[in-house]
Amino acid sequence: MTGSPLSLAVAFQAGPIAVTEPVLVTWGIMLLLAGGSWLLTRRLTLHPSRAQSVLELVVQAIEAQIADVMRAEPASYLPLIGTLFLFILTANWSSLIPGIEPPTAHLETDAALALIVFVAVFWFGIGSRGLRGYLATFAEPSFLMIPLNVVETITRTFSLVVRLFGNVMSGVFVVGIVLSLVGLLVPVPLMALDLLTGAVQAYIFSVLAMVFIGGAVAPKEPNA
């Protein structure tokens, strides 16, 4: 990344809408994840292959994490949380491909993810408690906490954006700067560190989403 992290390169123009590079990379990630999932889940059997076993391991690990963090049945939250984790992880690790900038290194993608979490908190909270019940949670433990709770709901969403954007963008910038200053192999350790950072950030974003949504829904012990 040589330009400003806040600037977006337009890939092509689709009528009035400018399709930027992060959108283009996101489409590639979507194609990879959805296409790969379709290919791997076409012939699922009761006696799993090695690839099916890996897929089941990943999905069941996400389910277990949801059940542990949210203390709720994970079936309703698995598509959202699982997609967030897999997308952020894949997007963060897409920086390994030369010439590709992770979509999560741009503010718009992180803001989109945080916006989805923000809406999901309301969606699942109202679905679980009802509108009145959910709004009542803002008055806990007292009415005096309503302003603070409202501010917290907004600011924690911004914190999601800033945390993910800052970590990924900084990693990409560091690698880019080092690569422009020294030899070809010097940034490799930093890239490995960037992989670890990307995985940790995907995990943190998903866990925080689970915490926010879990705080909004009525507490319920999971069956499994």
């Binding site: 977006l8 996101t26 993608t109 803001a111 989109a112």
Partner: peptide, 8 residues
């Protein structure tokens, strides 16, 4: 871009 990414 924000809208497209959200939809994506």
């Amino acid at each position: 871009t924000l809208a497209l990414q959200t939809i994506n």
